[in-house]
């Protein structure tokens, strides 16, 4: 191969490469803009509730947590009995990273009176899935610089992936379509984030052996500490609550122990109902081993409000 042909081959390659990158960038930009428009146009569904939590709510009581927050804290009961507005910013399957991001975004807009962090057993366990779940925050990355540090925990290359306008909406096209449909609007749009479960627990009790779990994820612990510190700095009342489980447990969950210890260190109240017999002895109050049903929710919400009454006043 002569030098001239080599040069021509290289020129040809870079020209073609530039043309390909141009097509990809154009499609990425256009499709990304459309997806962005319709994502934030949703009026129902989980993404809509996340947008409400991050961008809209100004509720006095802000509830953070996973599905156990979404299904357990009845915002209506809280609002009626405390005469304060309440928003449930929990999201199914989300770990501490999501809660911290929501809190940071909310604190940037306003200062809630009370923040309730719903705590789960295994909150600090080492599992890669927790980091994958940060994906729920990707659409907010460009609009909310305050959550950058949390989103970037997802992977070392997240910043680079987010150069694409489409990537933040990865796996979301169908839920965006559903969230924009008129017929879907009634779904969760007026619930202030609370989603009740009707069914009653059936089946055998699961056994959880907590004596085996030794290692905790230091990153999650660090994020939990930062969340507490953020509330302290902004003088927001933070209460950490661990709702009840309908399980047979051996030993004590290491995450709950650590969560409790760190809360005490920071003078933050940690209410542990995980093994409270006034709930655990009544399977009829549960929908499954992790979630209270609508009857359990009523009882639990009242217990919490009674316990925190003075603070709410």
């Amino acid at each position: 191969m002569t030098n001239t042909t080599k040069k021509k081959s290289l020129q040809n390659f870079f020209l073609k490469l530039a043309a390909c990158l141009l097509i990809i960038s154009l499609v990425d930009f256009t499709a990304g803009a459309i997806l962005n428009k319709y994502y934030f146009n949703q009026q129902s569904g989980y993404d809509y509730l996340t947008t409400c939590a991050i961008e809209n709510t100004t509720a006095d009581i802000l509830i953070l947590g996973s599905s156990r927050a979404v299904n357990i804290y009845n915002t209506d009961i809280f609002a009626k009995q405390t005469k304060l507005s309440c928003f449930n910013a929990g999201r199914y399957g989300e770990p501490i990273f999501y809660h911290y991001a929501v809190l940071k975004a909310a604190l940037k807009r306003y200062t809630p009176k009370t923040v309730i962090l719903s705590f789960d057993a295994g909150n600090f366990s080492i599992n890669a899935e927790a980091y994958d779940r940060i994906a729920a925050l990707l659409p907010y990355y460009k609009r909310h610089p305050e959550i950058h540090s949390i989103v970037e925990l997802k992977s070392p290359f997240e910043k680079m992936k987010l150069l694409s306008s489409i990537y933040p909406f990865n796996s979301l096209p169908l839920s965006i379509v559903a969230g924009n449909r008129e017929s879907n609007k009634a779904k969760y749009s007026n619930s202030n984030g609370f989603i009740p479960i009707e069914k009653t627990f059936e089946g055998e009790l699961k056994t959880f052996d907590y004596t085996k779990e030794k290692q905790l994820d230091p990153v999650k612990i660090e994020v939990y500490k930062s969340l507490m510190q953020e509330c302290i700095n902004r003088k927001v009342e933070l209460v950490v609550i661990c709702p009840p489980y309908q399980i047979h447990r051996i030993g004590v969950d290491a995450s709950i122990n650590e969560g409790k210890r760190l809360a005490q260190q920071n003078d933050i109240r940690f209410l542990d109902y995980s093994a409270d017999t006034s709930f655990t002895n009544y399977p009829a109050l549960f929908a499954d081993f992790r979630h209270l049903n609508i009857r359990g929710v009523e009882k639990f919400s009242n217990v919490i409000i009674d316990t925190l009454k003075k603070r709410f006043q």
Partner: peptide, 22 residues
Amino acid sequence: FWIRNSYYSLLIILIMLLGVFD
């Protein structure tokens, strides 16, 4: 050239949009 590469660009876009990255 443009049709051929649009097809592969579409594949890349679909990877970004529907690929499971985890």
